[in-house]
Nucleic acid binder design. Structure first.
Lengths: 219, 219
DNA sequence: ATTGACAAGATTGTATACAATTATAAAATA
DNA sequence: TATTTTATAATTGTATACAATCTTGTCAAT
């Protein structure tokens, strides 16, 4: 029997384009405020504007772009206040997922998480850091079985991750601290110390906000 | 100067159709599992399939329908477990909004909320209850200024509200209790008793889940 | 010099038409 | 009879073409 819930292999053109644009935005190749002209993008991807429009529609739903009727699409541009809002939401939601995930974690889950942490250590391409960082977080939330929550938090993560990648040199220290916390977190999960794990996680999620505040970037 | 941030008056056809379909789903006119054929809907709304497809795309993003490539759209159908998951998320997010809203509440905010509560008392059309219920909740969260959080929670509310409207007769008692809690909540907000207000709100959000569990409806 | 009106160009929104995929039901085989 | 095959119809995905809307630059009026 086929129990695969994931989207079918034959993805539609719109989804493929959405995926590529999403990566471009997340990696900062498309900057906030940048205009997205349907005609040019359609030619760039060598498709008509119809599937492209659907792709833009998806990205709007994820909050990555904004579509203004008759005036086109613009890459979203978050204020520091909005970034703080998203982190406040993540602090509320992610401990909830972790709390419910810990009782169901298996040896395989821990191994998967460890592998991702090693990949983060060895990765020198900063554009991939966000992807791997989310992969780790998701790996420790997934045993909760809360698919709706995970989808929501993934969207939140995607909306803020690009602001952490703007200064590859400056965040060397932040990165090391983040990895240290990841490992502590995993240890607490192994010991089933749910409360401490959640507190640490909440703390872990304050780091980026402080990091951004210090940079004084008016975003 | 125009400081209006809301979507412009001239809505696109796709948005109008999405709005109508959304109401139909929220009110239970389109039941879970129901197939949505593009051709028939396009004829019903007297438009081509292009704007209709965009409308469906929006609804999918909100979680109200699911689009399977080459196989069409189906109205989403939540399990009791998924409803519980959504309420767990709301319990995490809404007190956060309330906590930050209370310090900024003005006399006008309280008056608006009161008016909505009276409307709920006088409303005998159950289809509108969900709408008004959300209007109340939003009115007490809005002073927080957390637009992203509000948008997220509105989406969560929309996904579960139809399950509370299935048995108009049975929930007479639930409705009265809900209104009582709304008024207590508003009182606590007036007194700036933030902690108690948040606790009450969290409690208020457990009611529907218990109500649904008792009904034994396998949804 | 500044403001407002207006036309040309650019850009988005939608309808029609066609291609690709999937669902169905009848026919063929075991 | 049960199961596979195959052909037909139904449905979705996409390209092209056209209509509606917005932007931009020019020019007249105050």
């Amino acid at each position: 029997m086929d129990l695969n819930f994931d989207p079918p292999a034959s993805k539609t053109t719109a989804e493929q384009i959405a995926a590529q644009l999403r990566i471009a935005i997340l990696n900062g190749k498309l900057l906030g405020g940048e205009q997205l002209r349907q005609d040019k993008l359609a030619k760039a991807f060598q498709v008509s504007r119809i599937p492209l429009r659907e792709a833009l529609s998806h990205l709007q739903a994820e909050g990555l772009i904004e579509i203004i009727p008759n005036r086109g699409a613009v890459v979203t541009h978050l204020s520091l206040q909005e970034v703080e809002e998203i982190y406040a939401m993540r602090q509320a939601l992610e401990p909830l997922a972790l709390e419910r995930a810990i009782p169901h974690m298996t040896a395989e889950d821990f191994r998967d998480a460890e592998i991702i942490l090693e990949q983060i250590d060895n990765e020198d391409n900063f554009a991939r850091w966000g992807e791997l960082n989310w992969a780790f977080h998701e790996s420790i939330y997934r045993p909760s079985g809360m698919r709706i929550l995970l989808k929501t938090v993934e969207g939140l993560h995607n909306n803020v991750v690009r602001y952490l990648q703007v200064t590859p040199l400056g965040n060397q220290g932040y990165l090391a601290k983040s990895q240290e916390q990841h490992r502590q977190l995993l240890d607490l999960c192994r010991r089933k110390e749910i409360h401490d794990a959640c507190v640490l996680l909440e703390n872990h999620l304050t780091g980026p906000v402080e990091f951004l505040r210090k940079q004084q970037t008016d975003l």
